[in-house]
Structures are given as C-alpha cells and as structure tokens.
Design a protein around this nucleic acid. Structure first.
Length: 570
RNA sequence: CGGGGUUUAGCGCAGUUUGGUUAGCGCGUCUGCCUUGGGAGCAGAAGGUCGUGAGUUCAAAUCUCACAACUCCGACCA
C-alpha cells in the first residue's frame, strides 16, 4: 500500500471533545471520525487494526472449538418478551418498529437469538458441546457515551455462546474460553489481568473480566504480583487483620468536643488511627438504617454491605434515622444502641483491642472498646465489608496487593440454564430425559480492545502499536519522494518486504521529511525504514524502532532479513 | 434523567460583557516559488445559513425566549 493512496487524514490538533488520550490519538492519527454521539466510522487504518484483532480472536475461538456464524442485528421483540428481558432491559435497548408496526430491537447481545436458534435444532446430547460465535455490531443506548470507542453506543463485539449437556461440561467450556482469552490478549500485546467478577444475578457461576491495566481505566482493580490473583475493588476479598493482643482495659466514656471525624478524634486523643473504629450510616430502600463499622483507616465497601445485609440499594442515612435508634452522627458505635438498625461490623474490627469508638452521644467517645467483649454478638453481623487498599494482603498468597485502574475488554461467564429455561431450550440426555442446556457467554469488545491497546502503548509523539495489531508493520520512507533515485530505492525495499510477507506501507508522499516522520510516529508503525541521500550513498538503510526510538543501520542486502528479525520481538 | 459548560471556516480559538461598516486569528487546504532528516519559509487564494427557530431593534454573532446538538460531573457497562 502506498501512502498517496491511503485515506489517513491526520490532524495536528485534536477536537475539543476528545478527552481521553486514546480518543485524541485515534482522532489525530486518522483512525476514527464521529458520526453521532457514541457512533464512529472506523477509517482504513483503524479497520486494518480491527481486522487483525478480529483475526486473532477468530483463530483462538476456532482453536478452542468455536464455530463462527452471523446473526441479525435486528431482533424480533417476541423472543425478548419470551425471555422476559424486553421489559427488563429498559431504555438502554434501541427499539424500532417495521412498517407493519411489529417491534424489533437492535441487538445489545444475542442470548435470545442464539438460544432460539439452537433449541429447535439440537435435540440430542450427542450434538453437544456446541460453541457458536459471531463478530458484529451491537447496540446499547448508553446513558452517557464517552471516551470515544471506550463507551460507544454502536460497537463491534465478538460473542460466543456455549451449550453443554451438564454443569461439568459447561465448566470445561468456560475454561477453554478463559484460556483462549488469555491467548488472545497476550497475542495482542496487552498487559491485562483476568479479574474475578460478580455475576450473582445472572447465573451464580463463574465470571472473569479481562481487564487491560491502564491508569485511565474506569474500574479499580486490586491485583497481586506474586500470584495471578486480581479482583475488582468491589469484589476483592480481604483477610482479617489481627491486632496485637492486649489486656482488655475497662470501657470508659470521655469527652471529645466537636471531634466528629476520625481525623479529629485521632488528633484529639493522640491515638493511632488503627485504634479507632469508624461508622458509616446507610439506609436501604425501605428506610431501614444500616450501620457499618470499619477500622478508622479503612473504607466501607458498599457492595459487601449489600451482600451482608441482603439490601438491594444503599444511600446515605438521614440524621433523623440515626437519632431514632439513639445514635448521634459522628459519634456512633454499636454499644448501647436501640434496636431497629442493622449493625454490620467488619471482621477486622472484632480483632481490635482497647479501641476508640463513638459513645452515641454528641461530643463523647468510648475508649478501651473491645468489640468481642463490648459488642452484643446477638445484634451484630460480622462480615468482610471493607474496601481493599493497596498493601492489603492477597487472599491467595498473602503478598501485598497493588491497586491499578483497568479497562474491561472482555468477559467470560457461565449462564447455567437461565436462558435455556426461560426460552425452553432442551435436548434429550443419555437417559432420554428432556434436559435444559447449560450455557456460557463470552464477549470481547473489539474496538475497545484497540482503544485499550492505544491507551496502554503511547508516548508524546503518538501511538506505539505492537506488531500483531499494527495497521502496517513497517513503513518505508524516502526522505524526499521527489528524488527519483530515492523513491526507486525505497520502492525496491518495499517490494522485497512485501514479497517476504511483511505488511508494509510506502510513504511516497511528496512531503517534507519532518511531516512524514511526524505522521509515522503519530500513527505508530512499529518499524520505519528510512531512505535518504546518506543511505543511498553508503548502500545502507536506516531502521527506526518506534517503541524504543532506537535507530539502526543495516546493509542494503541484509535489510529485509534484519527487519523480519526485529519484527519478531515487536 | 439531574447539575454545569460549549456551539463562530476542515481543526483549534478570539469577537458577545457595552448591538453599529466588509466577522477575525493560528493551523490545515489550494496555486506559485523556495526547501527536503523532525509538522520550515515567502507570495497569493479559496473557504462562514455565527447550532436551529421565533422575537426585540433603524440595525443582532452580540439582547430575549424556546428548541437542538455536543461536552463535563453524578446513578449504568463489551
């Protein structure tokens, strides 16, 4: 491909609307243009990369036993009504009617489609397991599309659905997909983690989110470098931290004027923050007061509180609700409260000795609080309710956890028989019994993967593609394309590289060298082969590695081999 | 949906407070010259329903009202 024929409109400045680095770079490098909020055109460079990502996905899906097919984007309302999700999905689903007034949606996902496809056709356990997948546009009318391809309303997604005769089979399929995903993102050159995720409502099975580690990501991840543990901050389990055993001193109430925050209490009393107990007051949808207690230097994890109490939603408590149980905002503890509130105490708090906690009246605290002695065990729930922090011990191996942000690019989860039941999809098992399929569902956001790769690999000059997903692997640049000798020299190298199977671009534009170099760096081709009067005279070529900035000189005769060599490590 | 902000040439912006000729600037684009190892220089040119609609006024990018799109912050997710 020649740059004079390539449609890659680069920009010096990025449009004001682009916020995220990858979004700006995709705009500037001529990868995408916006058509409407959350809807983008993929220009040739982006589409080349997307096709490479899709090819990697395809190869790994096929290797794992998947078969590609293509389903309609437009789906009839009736199958969604049958599964019950027509009502459940809400405004996020793009809905439309045909000329007869029949209702359709633009598929946000394809469980209904695939399940109704399979249910009439697969009748015997002998036809299982079955893994079917497709790659195509999906539609979700996001509340707030943003960050370019990171959160768009129309996006390319690979989704595979597995059908098994039993749970064991489903788990095998799950593991195959888990392994395939690991290969896919590794081949794409991404630093990522398979993060334990929560999918309680969906099927109670396993779920992992494949998350690319990048500081601009939307989710918080706790991960361990000593083992492969990783979890979202909301999900991360925490072990109890045991305090040093002390003799329990007598409980005592003391005056702490205006010390309504942990910081103030700590300073006023001159105690370490690890010796304080903090209260956070919530109310659930019914207005029931939920008091959560954690160590002063810890934060409450609301999701864990939800799980511990069975509440569906939490919001900050009204002061009147606190007063109703005899509490006082800023001076709360479980000691001596009236009934009516759910009291959840973090397991680590129970291990504390001679701590400081509120006295349930304004401007007073208890000292020498010993939860195991002073809390009424019958009235409290003890659970892990704290939010993970960097430095907490890994629940698997005990090493210190690190925190980072991540971009979720794929998710695998087991569905069990949720959809096969709601859509009545059955087969006959070995004993001739009618049985529901055990299903799994596995998605990858293709555009998001591209965006995440850029987010993770860039510098001040632009994108740095890894070879596997670069729009072109190599660009050959004659410094002055108006010079016939240079152009011819460059064309020869270009032809040889092409013949050697390299995905190569010839930048034959009659632009100044600086312009072309800037564009090369911005677009981020892994290797640049430069032809100039100097290299012509010396019979050499110069090769620049985009990632390291390294400049290498090779003899003309060996340059194709050297480029092939270099590509192996990019 | 709630709360802010923005909307003027392909892109980035000024001008709006205090209404007043022909609406500017930088980048990009086009032509010519020059230049050819990091978005160089000189000369010239094209390019605008000032988001849309109504209103106030002798006169509106500028004031008023409505609407729309975009965008940021909060409740959702490949």
């Amino acid at each position: 491909m020649r740059a004079t024929e390539l449609y890659a409109p680069t920009l010096r400045e990025s449009p004001a609307e682009a916020e995220l680095l990858s979004h700006k770079l995709m705009f500037r490098a001529g990868l995408i243009r916006k058509a409407a909020g959350g809807m983008y055109t993929y220009l040739p460079l982006a589409w080349r990369t997307m096709k490479k990502i899709m090819q990697i996905i395809r190869e790994e899906m096929d290797a794992a036993g998947g078969q590609e097919l293509m389903m309609p984007i437009t789906q009839p309302a009736e199958i969604w009504r049958e599964s019950g999700r027509w009502a459940v999905y809400g405004p996020e689903m793009m809905r439309l009617k045909d000329r007869h007034g029949r209702e359709f949606c633009l598929g946000p996902t394809h469980e209904e489609m695939i399940t109704t496809l399979v249910r009439g056709e697969v009748r015997s356990y002998k036809q299982l397991p079955l893994m079917l997948y497709q790659m195509q546009n999906k539609y979700r009318d996001e509340i707030r599309p943003r960050f370019g391809l990171m959160r768009s309303r129309e996006f390319v997604m690979k989704d595979l659905y597995s059908f098994d005769k039993d749970v064991d089979g489903m788990n095998i399929s799950y593991q195959k997909m888990y392994d395939a995903y690991t290969k896919i993102f590794t081949r794409c050159g991404l630093k990522f983690r398979a993060v334990e995720a929560d999918n309680g409502a969906i099927g109670g099975g396993h779920s992992h989110e494949f998350t690319v580690l990048a500081p601009s990501g939307e989710s918080n991840i706790a991960y361990c470098e000593s083992c492969d543990y990783a979890a979202s901050d909301e999900k991360a389990e925490l072990k109890i931290i045991r305090a040093e055993v002390e003799e329990m001193k007598p409980l005592e109430k003391i005056s702490t004027p205006n010390a309504h925050t942990i910081e103030l209490v700590k300073n006023y009393l001159g105690v370490p923050i690890e010796k304080t107990i903090k209260a956070v007051a919530f109310q659930d949808d019914d207005g029931k007061l939920i008091l959560a207690f954690v160590r002063g230097d810890h934060e409450v994890n609301e999701i864990k509180v939800l799980n511990a109490t069975g509440a569906l939603h939490l919001h900050m408590a009204e002061e009147s609700a606190i007063n109703a149980v005899g509490g006082s905002a800023g001076f709360m503890s479980p000691i001596g409260l009236k009934d009516g509130a759910a009291i959840v105490v973090d397991a680590t708090v129970m291990e504390m000795y001679n701590a400081v906690a509120g006295a349930n009246e304004a401007d007073a605290h208890f000292i020498n609080v010993n939860p195991r002695r002073d809390f009424d065990a019958a009235k409290i729930i003890v659970a892990d309710i704290r939010m993970v922090q960097a430095g907490d011990p890994c629940p698997h191996c005990g090493a210190e956890l690190k925190m980072t942000r991540g971009i979720e690019v794929g998710q695998v989860f087991t569905l069990g028989s949720k959809y096969s039941k709601s859509l009545n999809a059955t087969f006959l098992d070995e004993s001739g019994k009618e049985t529901y399929f055990e299903m799994g569902c596995y998605g990858i956001g293709v555009g998001r993967t591209m965006a995440a790769a850029i987010e993770q690999n860039n510098d001040a000059d632009g994108i740095i593609w890894t070879r596997a997903i670069a729009p072109f692997e190599v660009v050959v640049v004659p410094v002055n394309a108006k010079d016939a000798a240079q152009l011819e020299y460059a064309e020869k190298i270009y032809d040889e590289l092409k013949a050697a199977g390299v995905d190569v671009l010839l930048d034959d534009r009659k632009e100044r060298a600086g312009v072309k170099f800037k564009d090369c760096d911005l677009i981020g081709y892994p290797l640049r082969v430069t032809v100039s009067p100097k290299t012509l005279d010396s019979g050499n070529v110069e090769v620049k590695i985009r990632k390291s900035g390294e400049m290498l000189n090779f003899n003309r005769a060996e340059c194709v081999d050297k480029v092939l060599d270099l590509l192996k490590n990019l």
